[in-house]
Computed example of a mutant assay.
Amino acid sequence: MPYDNAFVHPSASLAGRLANRIVSNRPLLRARRALLSRLPFLQLASDVENVVYCTWVVDVAAVATLVPRGVTLANRDGRTLFTTLTYAHRHFGPSIAGPLRRVFPSPLQSNWRLYLDALPGGTPVNGTVLFVKNVFDHPLYALGSRLFSDALPSHLAQRFTHTVQGDRYDTLLSGGGGSAPDLCCTAQVTEDRTLPDAFAPFFDGWREAVAFLSLQHAAIARVEDCGRLVYALIDLPINIDLVRPLQTTGPVGGGDFLARIGVTGEPFCFVVPKVAFRVLSERLL
């Protein structure tokens, strides 16, 4: 089945149908690119909290439709890594706003990604991921990122919670009638830093796995309406010493999307308590 990342609002109301038409309007997207390509990139900043990473080992063949032509995934013997990371922003807005950034909202976001070995043409990459899904709980950010950015193929969740109670992290993401994928996960902080057996072909230990999965400096995404790739530079200075291992305390649930790509079993989980996040640039390749 061809990969479809089109935006569908979770509400079938007039407002929802209007949002669908606006974010898929190709002349509007082309005009935005023509205008913004002539202006300096407006860097974005947020102080994100409670970043919960859940990673599975999946078959490369199962995610093949998600991967743009010419892009090579990091893999071992036909297996690769797929991660969801879910977190709370604190005042996500333009860096140039400085202290006035506090007036911007603090949405929840879930980013779903694969890890790359090479870009088209065989160019090797290090610390670069492929964004396949991005989900917000706030319509301003879901619609705004679709209209003003090519790097975030965003969706709006019908229901999205990401809460912390002591050492327990609860995440629930539901697309309802829209295009956002589903996910539910409850995980508890643990002191166990044992690397799951499935990850042994990729890493020598827990710390190496955490560093690879979290220390990223760039991302690409497929831009559906123009058939190109977008390349974004990000700054995510995570202190590995502060990362805490998590253990799921119940089944991790997902919907059709996770089932289609072969996500099964217990994920490898950890949490980054907080980190300053920056989007530095983006450009079409």
Rank of each mutant, 00 (worst) to 15 (best):
132 V>W: 00
114 L>F: 04
128 T>N: 00
78 G>A: 11
108 L>G: 13
148 F>I: 02
139 P>I: 00
164 V>N: 04
160 F>Q: 08
84 T>I: 13
164 V>E: 13
177 G>N: 13
123 T>H: 12
72 T>Q: 15
129 V>G: 01
86 T>E: 06
135 V>T: 06
99 P>Q: 14
101 R>K: 12
54 C>M: 09
73 L>Y: 04
163 T>S: 08
102 R>H: 10
68 P>G: 14
106 S>A: 14
53 Y>R: 09
144 G>Y: 02
104 F>P: 03
140 L>K: 10
131 F>E: 00
168 R>L: 12
135 V>I: 02
93 G>H: 12
59 D>Q: 12
50 N>Q: 15
79 R>A: 12
72 T>P: 06
150 D>N: 11
90 R>V: 08
87 Y>I: 03
132 V>G: 04
134 N>Y: 00
163 T>L: 12
144 G>P: 02
172 L>K: 13
77 D>P: 01
80 T>R: 05
48 V>L: 12
65 T>K: 08
137 D>Y: 03
97 A>D: 10
167 D>L: 12
48 V>D: 12
108 L>Y: 09
119 L>H: 01
121 G>R: 00
77 D>S: 15
58 V>A: 10
152 L>H: 08
126 N>M: 07
77 D>T: 11
170 D>I: 07
146 R>K: 12
158 Q>N: 06
63 V>P: 04
55 T>G: 07
92 F>R: 07
129 V>C: 05
43 Q>G: 15
151 A>Y: 07
140 L>G: 09
60 V>Y: 05
115 Y>N: 04
71 V>Q: 09
51 V>Q: 04
152 L>I: 08
160 F>N: 06
99 P>R: 15
112 W>S: 09
137 D>R: 03
79 R>W: 06
136 F>L: 11
173 L>E: 01
170 D>H: 13
83 T>Q: 13
57 V>I: 08
146 R>N: 05
153 P>D: 05
102 R>E: 01
133 K>C: 04
108 L>T: 01
137 D>V: 02
150 D>V: 02
85 L>N: 14
165 Q>A: 15
90 R>H: 11
103 V>G: 04
120 P>S: 08
71 V>P: 10
151 A>T: 05
53 Y>I: 04
96 I>G: 07
125 V>L: 04
152 L>D: 02
45 A>Q: 15
173 L>A: 08
47 D>G: 12
142 A>R: 02
69 R>C: 06
161 T>A: 10
114 L>T: 00
141 Y>W: 01
131 F>R: 00
171 T>P: 03
110 S>V: 09
61 A>R: 14
93 G>I: 09
167 D>K: 15
76 R>A: 15
166 G>P: 07
48 V>I: 15
148 F>H: 00
149 S>M: 14
110 S>F: 03
83 T>I: 11
112 W>Y: 08
67 V>P: 09
104 F>M: 07
93 G>K: 05
119 L>C: 08
118 A>P: 00
81 L>W: 10
161 T>Y: 10
148 F>R: 01
76 R>P: 01
84 T>G: 11
103 V>S: 10
